[in-house]
Write a protein that binds this DNA or RNA. Sequence first.
DNA 1: ATGGTCGAGCATCGA
Length: 262
Amino acid sequence: MKIASWNVNSLNVRLPHLQRWLQEATPDVVALQETKLEDPKFPDAALAELGYRSMFCGQKTYNGVALLSRLPFTSECVTGIPGFDDPQKRVLAATVGSEPGSPQALRIVNLYVVNGESVGSEKFEYKLRWLAAVREWLREELVQHPNLVVLGDFNIAPDDRDVYKPERWHEKILCSTPEREALKSLLDLGLHDSFRLFNDEAGHHSWWDYRLNAFDRGWGLRIDLVLVSQALRARCTGAGIDTGPRAWERPSDHTPVWVEVT
DNA sequence: ATGGTCGAGCATCGA
């Protein structure tokens, strides 16, 4: 089973890319971020034609998340962090494949983590509060759902191997110590960065700024992650980054990341 | 030379 995440930066603009990539990569489950679409405008019929059921939680202009699945959804759709009041649509969780709690079920938590703007800004403080609330929620999710996948645009590069020029990003947004510690506190719950189960090299990225031809120059960061629980870690057979779509015409600034589990 | 590009929606903001 292949589970993927992609920040599409407007599903309205990127639907043709998504359709092409679904057909080429044939993922079973896909988490999307930055759909920027209100729910009545979500293209669920077009995606159903490719065999995908959809859950979505969007808003105009900003944010917006969705889950696509070839397997049936077997739970309600959870939107937002329980108990954390937040008008921004950044979270969508559901169970796929089998009844919640069964060994065949997979719990999927799709996160569009707050960007944070710059270290020390109000948005930065919001990012850290938001991540602390996610941590407390995931602690409970792990009790209920041993087969847990937490994936999305984390807006955090886990360490310097994930940054094209670490000295340029030192203590900057996406790379600062408080952000990395917040991510580590999620991993400390019993989650693993699936990409690093298979590859420990530097130089693998999932996002490149639109400016200055960053993609062609290799100026990227790995900020899109697929975290897996302990039980799922044992079932992981591969993980990777599909850089192809970043080179297509009129691309998202992010490219899909994925994990394979048995 | 750490610059300046997208997407949204109509001037500028967020990333």
